[in-house]
Design a protein around this nucleic acid. Structure first.
Length: 485
RNA sequence: GACCCCAUCGUCUAGUCAGGACCAGGACAUCGGGUUUUCAUCCCGGUAACAGGGGUUCAAAUCCCCUUGGGGUCACCA
C-alpha cells in the first residue's frame, strides 16, 4: 500500500514574501491535487536573528491572495502540529541526542572564532572549505568533562568519508556525491535551535511528507539529508528539485534585479490568476492537444487538471516581466466590465489607504491625489531631464554617489520609511552633503518631479527594485549629460 | 577553486523519454501592414533557435562521449 501523498512548502519568515515561494507552492499544490493528497505549510523560523512574525503574516496573506491554500499549517492547525519549527525545539534536541548516541553525529565545541580562523586559513592555502573535524573523534572522557562544565557546543553530522551517497531526483535521476565532499554540517546550533538540515528531515518524516518539491539550490545539501534519513532509519521522501527562477543574466532571481516581493505584484495590480499562469509556465507547459495546438493561457483549475510533474523542465527560466504583463492583460480582458470595475475599486482603495497619511495635508480637493501619486504608477517617469541637476554641478561625482547609494539601498531591511530615513541621514552625514540639494536630486530621480510626498515615504511606497532602477537610470542620465557650457 | 545541476528563436517553451512526415511549431518581445477620430484591443504578415566537435544509425534537435558556456552550493541562513 502506498502512503497518501503529502507535500509541503517550508518558507522562512524573513523579509518580504518571495515570488519563489509562490512558485514552489504552486507546484506543490498542483502535485497534491493531482494525487488527492495534502499540502502542508510549515514555517521554518529556526533562525532567531532573522525570523519575525510580520514576515510570517505576509506569507500567509500573499499565498491566500493568490488562492494557494494549504490543508495544514500554523494558522489552520492539523494533526501533525505544531507547524512552526520554533515550537518544536524539544523534538529536534531529542533527535539530535539519538544521533549522538548512535554515533551518526557528535558534539562540537569549536567556537565561532576558531571556525572563522579555520575558514581564513582554508582560503589562504586554497584548501576546499569545510569543517576540519577537530571534534569529530574527541575521546569520550574529554567530551563528558566539557559537557559537565557546561561548555557550549553544537551537534555535527558525522559524514562517512569513504562512502558514496546517491540521491534520487525524480527529474534528474541519480545524483552521486563522494562522502569526502560532504561536510560535517551543524545540525543543532549552540542556542539549541536546529539548522535547516535537521529540522527539515525530522519534520518531513514526522509530518509524513512523501514528496519534497523544492528549488534546485537544495540539490547540494540533499546528500546530507539522505544521510540523516539513513541514520534515523527512515524511508526518504521522493526528491523533486524545481529549476531556479532567474534574473535576465541567468543568475538566481534577486530583489536587486527583479521585483521579488509578492506584495509588489499585488500592489502593481497583477491578477492572481495571471501571476499563477505565468509561474506555471516557468519550467512547465501544458501538454499539446490532440491536434497539436498549444494552450498557454489558463486558470488555476485548468492547470491542476492537466498537471504532470514529469513535464517540468530542468533548465532555469528567466523571469520575464514583459511576458507576465502580457498574460495579465489577457486575463484582465477576459473579465467583464463590472468585474474590472470591482477590481479597480479594490486596487485603488488599497493605494488610498496606503498613501492617505501623507496625502492628508496636501490635498485641497480629493482629485489632487493624482498629482502627488502618479510617480507610484508610471513605468516611465517621463522625467524632464532639466530637472535632474548634478550635485554641485559635478556629473561624474554625482553619478558615483548615486551608485553608492543604490548599493546601500539594496541592503536596507526592512524596506520602511524609518529605515530609509536612517540610511539617508547617515549617507549625507558621512559624505558631508548638503541635505537640501542632495535630497532634491533624489526626489527628482525617484519621483520624476520636484514636488512629491516626503522622500522616505515616497521611496518606501515603491518596490525596492523600482527605486533601484530609477536611481540607476538617473545616474546614467547624469553621467551622459552634456557638460554645462 | 571543489562538487553538483543545466543547455531549442532575445525571452518562456513544443518537439527529446519510445530517432524518421521538423529546411523545427506556439507565446512574449520586436519589425511591417490592416480595423479604429486618439490610445488600447483585435486581425494579418516578417525577422529570429537545435552551443561546438566527435561518434552510433539507412536516418539525430532527439541516443552516447568530449569541449564550451551558464547556473547552484560550499554559514552556529534557509
Amino acid at each position: 500500500m502506498t502512503r497518501p501523498v503529502r507535500v509541503r512548502i517550508a518558507p522562512s519568515p524573513t523579509g518580504d514574501p518571495h515570488v519563489g515561494t509562490a512558485y514552489i507552492a504552486l507546484f506543490n499544490l498542483a502535485f497534491a491535487r493531482q494525487h488527492r493528497g495534502k499540502f502542508v505549510l510549515r514555517i521554518e523560523d529556526t533562525d532567531q536573528a532573522r525570523s519575525n512574525r510580520d514576515s510570517e503574516e505576509m506569507i500567509f496573506a500573499s499565498l491566500r491572495w493568490l488562492g494557494l491554500s494549504w490543508d495544514e499549517g500554523p494558522d489552520v492547525g492539523g494533526p501533525f502540529g505544531p507547524y512552526r519549527q520554533s515550537e518544536r525545539t524539544a523534538i529536534y534536541q531529542q533527535h539530535a541526542k539519538t544521533l549522538i548516541e548512535s554515533g551518526a553525529a557528535y558534539r562540537c565545541f569549536c567556537t565561532k572564532e576558531r571556525l572563522e580562523e579555520m575558514r581564513l586559513d582554508q582560503q589562504r592555502f586554497k584548501r576546499s572549505p569545510g569543517y576540519d573535524g577537530r571534534c569529530r573523534d574527541l575521546p569520550p572522557g574529554e567530551v563528558e568533562a566539557l559537557v559537565a562544565e557546561r561548555a557550549p557546543f553544537t551537534v555535527r553530522l558525522r559524514a562517512p568519508k569513504e562512502e558514496e551517497v546517491v540521491c534520487q531526483d525524480r527529474l534528474r535521476g541519480a545524483i552521486a556525491f563522494q562522502g569526502r565532499e560532504i561536510d560535517d554540517q551543524i545540525l543543532l546550533k549552540a542556542d539549541g535551535y536546529p539548522t535547516y538540515h535537521l529540522a527539515n528531515v525530522v519534520d518531513d518524516h514526522l509530518m509524513e511528507i512523501t514528496h519534497v518539491i523544492r528549488a534546485e539550490e537544495w540539490i547540494s545539501s540533499t546528500p546530507k539529508h539522505v544521510l540523516l534519513y539513513r541514520a534515523f532509519d527512515w524511508p526518504p521522501p521522493e526528491f523533486i528539485h524545481m529549476p531556479l527562477l532567474r534574473n535576465q543574466d541567468k543568475s538566481k532571481i534577486s530583489k536587486r534585479r527583479n521585483p521579488c516581493s509578492l506584495n509588489y505584484y499585488r500592489d502593481a495590480g497583477y491578477l492572481p490568476a495571471a501571476l499563477l499562469n505565468f509561474l506555471a509556465l516557468q519550467g512547465w507547459s501544458m501538454p499539446p492537444k490532440e491536434d497539436g495546438t498549444e494552450v498557454d493561457r489558463f486558470t488555476l483549475e485548468e492547470f491542476f487538471a492537466h498537471f504532470n510533474i514529469d513535464r517540468v523542465k530542468t533548465g532555469g527560466p528567466v523571469f520575464d516581466l514583459k511576458k507576465l504583463e502580457a498574460i495579465n492583460g489577457d486575463h484582465i480582458r477576459r473579465k467583464s466590465v463590472d468585474e474590472i470595475a470591482a477590481l479597480l475599486k479594490e486596487h485603488a482603495g488599497r493605494w488610498f489607504e496606503k498613501t492617505a497619511h501623507f496625502l492628508h495635508d496636501r490635498l485641497d480637493k480629493l482629485s489632487d491625489f493624482a498629482r502627488y501619486t502618479d510617480f507610484l504608477f508610471r513605468d516611465d517617469l517621463g522625467r524632464d531631464p532639466a530637472l535632474l541637476r548634478p550635485y554641485a554641478g559635478d556629473r561624474q561625482e554625482t553619478a558615483k554617489r548615486l551608485k553608492t547609494l543604490t548599493e546601500e539601498f539594496e541592503q536596507v531591511v526592512p524596506w520602511k520609511p524609518a529605515t530609509i530615513t536612517d540610511l539617508l541621514a547617515r549617507f549625507v552625514a558621512r559624505h558631508g552633503l548638503d541635505r537640501k540639494e542632495f535630497f532634491m536630486l533624489l526626489r527628482v530621480a525617484v519621483t520624476g518631479s520636484t514636488v512629491s510626498p516626503p522622500l522616505d515615504e515616497s521611496i518606501a511606497a515603491l518596490d525596492r527594485f523600482v527605486v533601484l532602477e530609477r536611481l540607476r537610470a538617473a545616474a546614467k542620465t547624469i553621467r551622459e549629460m552634456k557638460p554645462a557650457p
